[in-house]
Design a protein around this nucleic acid. Structure first.
Length: 847
RNA sequence: GCGGGCGUGGCGAAAUCGGUAGACGCUGGGGUCUUAAACACCCUUUCCUUUGGAGUACGGGUUCAAGUCCCGUCGCCCGCACCA
């Protein structure tokens, strides 16, 4: 071979790894274990560059840890339930199961050529009955532990298709297929009691030292622990059997500035009014329009209706406040009723301005007179403000202190009760859909809601279903629903709801430790392999998936499926950025944008010469056609080029822009390394004075590459490898020294470009596979450098530099610095006011 | 709307603790080799009114020293509980 040919080489080494079983995970008590996991993919049918980046990162970690002597678990599976399979069945016919398994086969076929160090013997899909049957067993265990219950909750209802819609399927308040105005409707649904763990999930965040700070912060905000007060506002006249309106507020310090009340349209008082007042009924009906998502509710126009009812202010009884029904008040949070302080809440202010309601200040900024116009006065809670005739007698205070003082004051007078509340709601897991894990429950007329017998698991999905009409095929299946009660044996009906796919992904990491066990987990395997030492995935999962997984691990511990040590399943988390690409756009006759694939654009023009408009990079998406298929890159350049590219340039947590020139450059670099290795392997030049220098360069490269990988800065490892290659190629060192350097190069390249690394390793006569060679360690003596360069600043600007021995005392450094020719010139005789020497860093002369 | 993040040359970026801004790579420019090309190799590439000055989205602040810390503004990205 005179040129590096990835197509031949990559297949050869993949076969060699398979034959040697290099990546099979084995429990080995003699070695430390390391569990690397990348978030498993949804089997859409095609891998994309984001997958390549995600799995290459995991692979670099897995291969490095293996070389460093760990027993590594690096598995792969499929998050295989979910809506797209049903959508495909509706659009193209066929069965979700066939579609899913065929996609899995396709994607596996695309992933294998990447040469990832995955133990494929552990592969499973969440739609395998062996997997979801174990999930059903855990659901039953959780029922027994009181972690599962049923209650009513709102869903998006499409009144034309007569079906429940996902938030994603509601576009501008309308159903995506029917285009009908979506309504909010209540259904009885299954819930996991994640709220039992609110405080635990919050406080345990402090122990997740190797999680990104931003993810911990997002989770903490999501759980939303707040200290507030529940206050009764007495109704001026009793209504519907109620004598008071109970509100929860986190800002009792602003009670003086309350000017009106707002209740949710679902609030009992609103409902009671609606029963007798058609105007209220119509308004409440209107409020049900639109989707259920918080973003939709929060951004919708704020609507209100004055009920005519009033309450008395609990502290200032001479004041009465009107009760409004507001479409922005959530029945799920607090008590479904709030008091509104438009002076200090922008949403309340917008509402007050719209309906001409009064606006009052509870406080001002100290020394200022803040007239509220269109902007509410909302300083941060730790800012000291000046309260106006506050009921506790407070004047200057932070909101934090004022809130506590207000709660104490009101509790002492029996006006309210301090309370801790969480924003976190229980996890609704019911889905009225076919392609998900059936909820293993039976509805019996005599016994009520009964869990299935474990012996009957898995409750399999029936295969004979159709998707020609909207709605849940399980619900209209002629026979599947009919069963017998596990308790009394009478005829009974199966639950037709299936589980949220987040349930599937909340424990797959545990299943990988014993993927074929006849129970959800195997105690010994779980004890050995858990926790995941490094978890890698997109930041879009920062809240829901990760929070649900943290809850589920706790629930699995409570039901005996995981050890106590595994309740925080992910020791370290890394959130990687996206792969982006420029967007190429032209316009059609009507001026609408038309997008073009990167492969159809050369030098900014289409094949017919039309110039395209280049829109800055965005996440690769089919709709914008800015996708590069990893398979075409592998076909053109090989997997190592794709792997090298996605590790280069951008830091892993940031987005990386895919460019054709970058891919070519990556390919050229790898060919260059091969060429140098080829030359070195055939060279017989004698030892040379530069041999020692090359040894130092090698040590530097080992240190830098290792530091880059361990610090999750693969781009810096790549830069270090470029530097090493440049030095090696220019070095005059002898053949033996160069061979040693090149062997180290192969070892350092191995995690990122494993095929090329094996080829070079073999070329230089390395023993066995480089994938199984130990990770090199730099000789500390070679990393030391006697002299250092110190920059000299004059008034903070760099004006000169000096070279001094590393450990020279400051007094000596000062002398040399002041004697420096450039320094003398710049000082021009001015007296030195101050001289700062930061050892090993810098000298600053202040005049 | 709410919560979180990000912003450095023509481009992707680096700068570990507040201490030389631009490592490494791409693109562009110039050159060597070649009959020519491809490949490869070498040099160069922040900007400007260049004995010097400016510069890390923008406007302020703290400091001997700010890309890094603080306050405010703008822009982009992610999440918002039934997308996965």
């Amino acid at each position: 071979m005179t040129r590096y040919d990835p197509a031949v080489t990559e297949a050869k080494w993949q076969a060699a790894w398979d034959a040697a079983g290099v990546f099979t995970a084995r429990r080995d008590p003699a070695r430390p274990k390391y569990y690397v996991l990348e978030m498993f993919p949804y089997p859409s049918g095609r891998i994309h560059m984001g997958h390549v980046r995600n799995y290459t990162m995991g692979d670099v970690v897995a291969r490095t840890k293996a070389a460093q002597g760990h027993s590594v678990l690096h598995p792969m599976g499929w998050d295989a339930f979910g809506m797209p399979a049903e959508n495909a069945a509706m659009e193209r016919g066929g069965h979700p199961k066939d579609w899913t398994y065929s996609n899995i086969a396709d994607m596996r076929g695309q992933m294998k050529p990447l040469g990832l160090s995955i133990d494929w013997s552990r592969e499973f899909a969440t739609c395998d009955p062996e997997y979801y049957g174990q999930q059903q067993a855990m659901f039953i265990d959780m029922m027994e532990k009181g972690l599962v219950y049923r209650k009513n909750a709102v869903v998006n209802w499409d009144p034309v298709d007569m079906t429940v819609l996902a938030n994603e399927q509601v576009i501008d308040g309308r159903g995506w297929r029917s285009n009908a105005a979506v309504e909010r409707r209540e259904l009885t649904q299954w819930f996991f009691k994640i709220s039992d763990y609110s405080d635990e999930l919050l406080t345990a965040l402090d122990g997740l030292h190797n999680w990104p700070e931003k993810v911990r912060l997002m989770q903490a905000n999501w759980i939303g622990k707040s200290r507030g007060i529940e206050v009764d506002f007495p109704l001026t006249a009793p209504f519907a059997g109620q004598s008071a309106l109970t509100c929860y507020s986190t800002r009792p310090d602003t009670l003086r500035a309350a000017t009106f009340m707002a209740i949710a349209p679902e609030h009992p008082i609103a409902q009671a009014l609606a029963a007798s007042d058609p105007a209220v009924a119509t308004f409440c009906e209107d409020c049900r329009k639109g989707g259920t998502s918080e973003a939709a509710i929060e951004t919708a126009e704020k609507l209100g209706l004055d009920t005519g009812l009033t309450v008395r202010h609990p502290i200032y009884p001479e004041q009465t406040l009107a009760i409004w029904i507001g479409n922005f008040v959530l029945m799920e949070y607090g008590t479904g009723a709030i008091y509104c302080c438009p002076g200090h809440d922008q949403r309340d202010l917008d509402f007050a301005r719209k309906y001409g309601l009064p606006v009052v200040n509870a406080f001002h900024m100290p020394g200022e007179v803040n007239q509220i116009d269109r902007e509410a006065l909302v300083p941060a809670k730790d800012v000291t403000v000046a309260y106006d005739s506050h009921f506790t007698g407070l004047t200057l205070s932070t909101a934090y202190d004022a809130i506590e003082a207000s709660i104490d004051w009101m509790e002492a007078r029996g006006l309210g009760k301090g309370q801790v509340k969480y924003r976190l709601r229980d996890w609704g897991v019911s889905r009225q859909r076919y392609w998900g894990c059936p909820i293993p429950v039976v509805h019996c007329e005599g016994c009520g809601v009964v869990a299935e017998k474990k012996a009957n698991l898995p409750i399999r999905l029936p295969d004979d279903v159709t998707f020609d009409v909207p709605g849940n095929p399980l619900d209209r299946h002629p026979t599947w629903r009919n069963t017998t009660c596990p308790q009394c044996g009478a005829a009974a009906r199966r639950e037709t709801d299936t589980m949220d796919t987040f349930v599937d992904s909340s424990w797959y990491y545990a299943r990988f430790t014993a993927p074929h066990a006849l129970t959800p987990t195997d105690a010994e395997d779980a004890a050995y392999w858990m926790n995941v030492d490094q978890y890698i995935g997109g930041v879009e999962h920062a809240i829901l998936h990760l929070l649900y997984s943290r809850f589920f691990a706790r629930a699995m511990h409570a039901t005996g499926h995981l050890p106590a040590s595994a309740i925080e399943p992910f020791n370290a988390l890394f959130t990687q950025g996206m792969v982006t690409h420029e967007i190429y756009q032209t316009r059609d006759a009507a001026g609408r944008p038309v997008y073009h694939l990167p492969e159809d654009v050369t030098d900014g023009r289409l094949a017919d010469g039309t110039a395209v408009e280049i829109i800055p990079s965005a996440k690769m998406s089919k709709s914008k056609k800015n996708v590069v298929d990893p398979m075409s890159i592998i076909a053109a350049f090989g997997a190592d080029t794709a792997r090298w590219f996605v590790m280069s340039d951008s830091p892993p947590e940031r987005d990386v822009e895919w460019t054709a020139s970058g891919a070519e450059a990556a390919s050229k670099f790898l060919a260059r390394v091969w060429r140098i290795a080829d030359e070195v392997s055939r060279s017989d030049t004698p030892a040379h004075a530069d041999d020692a220098e090359l040894a130092r360069t090698t040590a530097r490269a080992i240190a830098d590459v290792t530091a880059g990988i361990e610090g999750f800065a693969f781009n810096k490892s790549v830069a270090a490898l470029y530097t090493f290659t440049n030095s090696l190629s220019k070095s005059a060192a002898g053949a033996q020294a160069k061979r040693a350097a090149m062997q180290t190069m192969a070892q350092l390249l191995q995690p990122m470009v494993p095929h090329l690394a094996e080829e070079i390793w073999a070329m230089l006569g390395g023993t066995g596979l480089v994938a199984q060679a130990p990770w090199p360690k730099p000789d500390p003596a070679l990393l030391e450098d006697g002299n250092i360069t110190l920059p000299i600043q004059i008034n903070g600007k760099r004006r000169a530099e000096i070279s001094v021995p590393k450990d020279m005392p400051n007094s000596e450094v000062e002398k040399i610095a002041l004697a420096n020719e450039d320094v003398v010139k710049f000082l021009a005789g001015q007296p030195v006011k101050k001289l700062i020497v930061v050892p090993g860093r810098i000298v600053n002369v202040v005049v």
